[in-house]
Amino acid sequence: MTARTTVLITGASTGIGATYADRFARRGHDLVLVARDKTRLDILAAHLRDATGVKVDVLPADLTQAGDLAAVEARLREDAAIETLINNAGATLSGPFVNQATDDVARLVALNTTALVRLASAIAPRLAQAGKGAIVNLGSVVGLAPEFGMSVYGATKAFALFLSQGLSLELTPKGVYVQAVLPAGTRTEIWERAGIDVNTLSELMDVNALVDAALVGFDRRELVTIPPLQDAANWEALDSARRGLLADLQQATVAERYRVAN
């Protein structure tokens, strides 16, 4: 009998993370659920145990706090049953950059980038040695579009995409799958936490539809999954154009337009 593998999910108490927990539990995976709100985690864990019979551990942690983050890193390094990391925890900020407090910006970056890369770093060597497993990083379409006006949040999500693409190049040959998931606006509590009235937003995707689409991409082993993108050829064209630049970027000669005549 094959042992059940475990999925560790951050930001698991609600929204996208809780929905991932439900879906993986129904697929027969044991879970480690990470979030700040222990009460919500306990309620979700009890529900999933009753509904699916899987083992669900609760690991309360604020990933912006060094001690809490270290505890999650240790679990990822030491628990050989964990074969999938869903790097979902994240936050956003309302308003323009010049109105955002520096400390708030720093916390956002700590959660959306530092925690994400540290957790990936904690599990990746073990997965690579085992020759199996998966890392899923939740980005955002905002990371592709500065025009959306969420400069810091978008920058952190661009980081998540770049990291995923780089790790995929390194880890795929070792048997480890890395997926970047780029949602558009999704109906979750992230907006309320940022002080944004969700009722003022249009075209928000249902969280169940978002996660189910992301899992279709996961099962197909897509490197980048963009659930709201209707025409996949548009992403393929963008990525192809980017790769087409590579030879031009590796030049020792300054481009003609930057040469100053004497």
Results as ranks from 00 to 15, higher is better:
1 M>Q: 14
3 A>T: 12
5 T>Q: 14
7 V>F: 10
9 I>E: 07
13 S>G: 10
15 G>R: 12
15 G>P: 07
18 A>F: 04
20 Y>I: 00
21 A>K: 12
22 D>R: 15
23 R>M: 02
23 R>C: 01
24 F>Y: 13
25 A>E: 04
25 A>W: 13
28 G>R: 14
28 G>H: 11
37 D>K: 15
39 T>C: 01
44 L>P: 00
45 A>C: 03
47 H>D: 05
47 H>N: 07
48 L>K: 10
48 L>E: 09
51 A>V: 08
56 V>I: 10
57 D>V: 05
57 D>G: 03
60 P>G: 10
60 P>M: 14
63 L>I: 01
63 L>H: 03
64 T>W: 03
69 L>I: 04
71 A>N: 11
72 V>E: 01
73 E>K: 04
73 E>T: 06
74 A>C: 06
76 L>R: 05
78 E>T: 13
81 A>Y: 11
82 I>A: 05
83 E>P: 00
84 T>K: 13
86 I>A: 02
87 N>A: 12
90 G>W: 11
91 A>C: 04
94 S>C: 00
98 V>N: 11
98 V>C: 02
100 Q>A: 00
101 A>R: 15
105 V>N: 07
105 V>M: 10
105 V>G: 01
112 N>H: 06
113 T>C: 13
113 T>Y: 06
113 T>E: 13
123 I>T: 08
125 P>I: 12
125 P>A: 12
126 R>H: 07
128 A>W: 14
134 A>H: 15
135 I>Y: 05
135 I>N: 03
136 V>L: 11
136 V>S: 07
138 L>Y: 09
138 L>S: 07
138 L>M: 15
140 S>I: 07
141 V>H: 08
143 G>W: 03
145 A>G: 02
145 A>N: 15
147 E>T: 11
147 E>Q: 13
148 F>D: 01
148 F>K: 03
152 V>A: 10
157 K>D: 01
162 F>P: 00
162 F>C: 04
163 L>M: 14
166 G>Q: 08
166 G>M: 05
167 L>W: 11
167 L>D: 02
168 S>H: 15
171 L>K: 14
174 K>A: 08
175 G>C: 05
176 V>K: 01
177 Y>F: 14
180 A>F: 09
182 L>F: 02
182 L>A: 02
184 A>K: 05
184 A>Q: 06
184 A>S: 15
188 T>S: 07
190 I>D: 03
190 I>W: 10
191 W>A: 06
192 E>I: 06
193 R>T: 06
194 A>T: 06
194 A>Y: 06
197 D>R: 13
198 V>E: 02
203 E>H: 12
204 L>G: 05
209 A>D: 15
210 L>E: 08
211 V>S: 10
215 L>P: 00
215 L>S: 05
218 F>A: 03
219 D>I: 09
219 D>A: 13
222 E>H: 11
223 L>G: 02
224 V>F: 02
226 I>S: 05
227 P>D: 07
228 P>N: 11
228 P>K: 14
228 P>F: 09
233 A>C: 02
236 E>G: 03
242 R>E: 01
242 R>T: 09
244 G>Q: 12
246 L>K: 14
247 A>M: 08
250 Q>D: 11
250 Q>L: 04
257 R>C: 00
260 V>D: 02
